[in-house]
Design a protein around this nucleic acid. Structure first.
Length: 574
DNA sequence: GCCGTTTTCGGCCCGACTGTTTTCAGTCG
């Protein structure tokens, strides 16, 4: 059983226990464990098999949960889950997902009105049975009906890059408000998560009321969801929820820290504050019962009050950042300016729209020193993939161009297909002439885990291959990753001195953050590359860098922060 | 159910907003 599957079981148990109203801390223990397992860069099966290690060494896994993991690994099922499902119909969990309905109300609806499905929920609301329950009223009934509609619209998350468009537009609008003195987006957007569920803005304003009036007047506002003295939520026409919090200037740092999260990071932080007899909230850090904060103006100040460094937002996920801080090993994360070359770009020779010369010019404008032209190989007929003859003609053109270019190098590359039956789409003799070869799975994505893993490992064992492009094939919110044993692939990459691509396209971001951390564990250098098909896509590099930062990568961990001469040595091409 | 520089028992983050109440429970982030 894989880590994600085990994490899903624990998350489901947490949901079921929540519905039953058991001890909230027991529920949290299951949730914490699920999250830890999702983030774990190694497979639980491997740790369980290793005689020298124990599952209980993993944070938030104790004796009890370790035994449950073993039960899952050995039998594929878990008795406590079967018991819970016998008591609570699985369909009621959908009710918990309706906005405005938590465990208490969902349980009341189930116990008093026998509601087990969303359809039944709608029916009892429409027939006004809900308002007769204790603690419910007409407004709650209406709110549930609206929540049901919202759930039906399948409130999706959006890509970080799409969220960025909203953020810039909302910032521009809010900056026009005279009473707003400071402004900053927070939440998962600031942490650079690959997808974003809602947007949070934080402001200092001399007049809360006018700031919120201005916010509500945003052109794309579809509805004001709630409005209090300092907090307001709106929904945009596309369904995205946007929150604005107005705080006093002396609390801005504390509020920024608080609303940047993550929730799990904040819980750990609060625990640490408590151990020092400090209290931390969105208004500041307080000692004892004192109302005068010891910190709050800036985030640096807030963290410093707890003897902690000001963590880059991308690391605030309660993964390893606190351990790193304790041991003084907080990594200095890679930055976009560190990147010297782009190693995955398509030209008009296959399915790109820019000529090689246009790409070189654009890359130079992005401050890069080299770019690899990596058009598709012939198997990708739909993309006008190149056979060895066309590839050699293309490389002759690149040679001619390089003679004219000063201080910039175009690399002769190719994105060679890993064929369904195994093996590569081009012969070794032509691949050996390339500067840079990325191998990629495009066909046979529905094959078994064993088949796909074997194909990719075989590609890694080919001396001509430098890296694997978009290693899991996922497309965010469109297509799941194909079945692949990433751990085995990374081990093979490490053994063969190969690299892994972090594809920077905002819909791929593949490797993901956990995958980046896993690559680092295996000593495998990561190459951040845009997979541009148009010259204006070269700017997507920053999305990839952001993902690498979330994975805790430094400039040294990212191969293409080096000059091409040094990269060449790393891949044994010189 | 986890965890321990105060602890193997007794803690486990904290505040805003809404609706249903008439002082607070439930939900959310």
């Amino acid at each position: 059983m894989t880590n994600p599957a085990i994490a899903a079981v624990f998350a489901q148990i947490a949901d079921l226990l929540e519905f039953q109203g058991t001890n909230p801390f027991r529920i949290r223990a299951y949730r914490n464990a699920a999250r830890t397992i999702e983030d774990l860069p190694e497979s639980l099966a491997d740790i369980a098999d290793d005689e020298n290690r124990s599952l209980t060494d993993i944070e938030s896994i104790g004796k009890d949960l370790a035994a449950k993991i073993v039960e899952l690994l050995q039998s594929g099922s878990l008795s406590i889950l079967d018991d819970l499902l016998a008591e609570v119909p699985e369909s009621v969990l959908a009710i918990l997902r309706v906005p405005g309905l938590g465990p208490k109300r969902a349980a009341a609806l189930y116990n008093e009105l026998n509601v087990t499905t969303l359809d039944e929920l709608r029916r009892v609301c429409e027939s006004q049975l809900v308002r007769q329950l204790k603690g419910f009223g007409a407004k709650t009934e209406q709110a549930i009906l609206q929540g049901l509609e919202l759930a039906a619209e399948s409130q999706q998350r959006i890509l970080w890059a799409q969220a960025d468009v909203h953020v810039q537009a909302i910032l521009a609008h809010l900056y026009q408000c005279d009473t707003i003195e400071r402004l900053q987006p927070a939440g998962s957007f600031r942490r650079g998560k690959e997808t974003v569920g809602d947007l949070d803005f934080l402001a200092v304003a001399c007049d809360c009321g006018s700031a919120m009036d201005h916010f509500a007047a945003y052109a794309d506002t579809a509805k004001v969801l709630l409005r209090g003295e300092t907090k307001m939520s709106i929904r945009l026409s596309d369904g995205l929820q946007v929150d604005l919090r107005v705080v006093p200037a002396e609390s801005f740092g504390a509020a920024l820290q608080y609303f940047t999260g993550s929730k799990a990071h904040n819980i750990v932080l609060r625990g640490k504050a408590k151990a020092r007899e400090l209290k931390i909230n969105e208004y500041g850090v307080f000692r004892g019962g004192s109302e005068k904060p010891v910190a709050g103006h800036t985030e640096e100040e807030v963290y410093a009050a707890l003897d902690l460094p000001c963590f880059p937002p991308e690391l605030r996920e309660a993964r390893r950042e606190f351990d790193w801080a304790d041991s003084g090993e907080l990594p200095r994360l890679v930055e976009t300016q560190d990147i010297r070359g782009d190693l995955h770009v398509h030209s008009t020779w296959s399915d790109g729209v820019g000529t090689i010369e246009e790409i070189a010019e654009a890359a130079r404008k992005h401050g890069l020193k080299y770019v690899a032209i990596t058009d598709h190989s012939k198997r990708l007929t739909i993309a006008n993939g190149l056979d060895s003859a066309r590839l050699r003609r293309q490389w002759a053109e690149i040679d001619r161009l390089n003679r004219r270019l000063k201080g910039f190098t175009v690399l002769k590359g190719v994105e060679v297909d890993i064929l369904e039956r195994g093996g590569l789409d081009l012969d070794d003799d032509v691949l050996a002439e390339a500067d840079w070869v990325v191998a990629a799975v495009h066909y046979g994505q529905n094959q078994s885990r064993e088949q796909i893993t074997r194909r990719v490992i075989e590609a890694l064992e080919n001396p001509c291959v430098c890296a694997i492009a978009h290693p899991t094939g996922r497309k965010l919110m469109q297509r799941k990753a194909y079945e692949i044993d990433l751990d085995a692939v990374l081990a093979a990459a490490g053994k063969n001195g190969k690299m892994m691509e972090l594809n920077a396209h905002p819909i791929r971001l593949d490797l993901d953050d956990v995958g980046c951390a896993a690559a680092k564990n295996h000593g495998v250098p990561v190459v951040i590359a845009t997979d541009s098909h148009r010259v204006d896509e070269l700017g997507m590099m920053r999305y990839g860098v952001q993902q690498a930062r979330r994975g805790g990568l430094t400039a040294a961990d990212v191969a293409n922060t080096r000059s091409w001469a040094k990269m060449k040595k790393m891949i044994g091409k010189s």
